[in-house]
Amino acid sequence: MIEVKNVTKTYGKKHSTFKALDDVSFSIPEGASVAIVGKSGSGKSTLMHAMSGLDRPESGEVIIDGTNILKLKSKAVDRFRSEKIGFIFQAFFVQANETCYDNVALPLEIARVSGTARKAQIVDALNIVELGDKVRQKARNLSGGQKQRLAIARAIVNKPSIIFADEPTGNLDSTTGEKVEDLLFGLNKQNGSTLIIVTHDADLASKCDMQIYVKDGKIDRIEGEQAAPVEEPEEVVVEKGPQDSREDSRHLKGVSRIGGDKESEEEE
């Protein structure tokens, strides 16, 4: 469960201030796939940074699993990111000089996972993204699609509860892009981790459970399972029940087509 409450982020000083986020509020149920949609400069990246603890808006709350991460000390925020968050970027940001293994090892090293547990997790993650045969290959020898799949392996190796994907298919052609999308949604359904995709691609956004449209630093509209931001915390607790059952149904379906999944949720 991610709750964003009245988040405001201002850039610049004194006279030339610019509100990247202006009193933004919404909530995302656990395990959902969410698209944050908006044009370049709309504030969607700032929103992602605020939700992932990379940036600190000056006012508002970002409550993840009951903790307001904006109130945490920087050390705790770093720990939160290393344990609960996975990142996927448009430009992959894989280390070309490093092997696939060492690329995927980075989040585990940061989270101080012991060496023995590490190896199995890395191999697992690489197998999931179908790069199991390229463990010792240098990342520079991979194709674009493979690089992004490597980045996905790196994002999921630590079994994070939330994965942020910033334009994950922006640098890929449509065929490889689709494969990456399938992988992301499949993982979202299988592992029950929340997937938050930042994109301006309406096609990709439509495949998500929920779409948050951002315009000029404000929420333009929210489509999908939850049309209105949660006002009362009590309501959230009430909603837990149906959410759990929905997760179960998702599990049964496995990596089913997104459209069907969406319909079933709308029925609830």
Binding site: K75, D78, F93
Partner: peptide, 16 residues
């Protein structure tokens, strides 16, 4: 710069 940024985004401490 990118590599450092990524490591920090993944939760690596400035000290590290």
């Amino acid at each position: 710069t990118r590599e450092i940024g990524l490591m920090k985004a993944l939760g690596m401490r400035g000290k590290s």
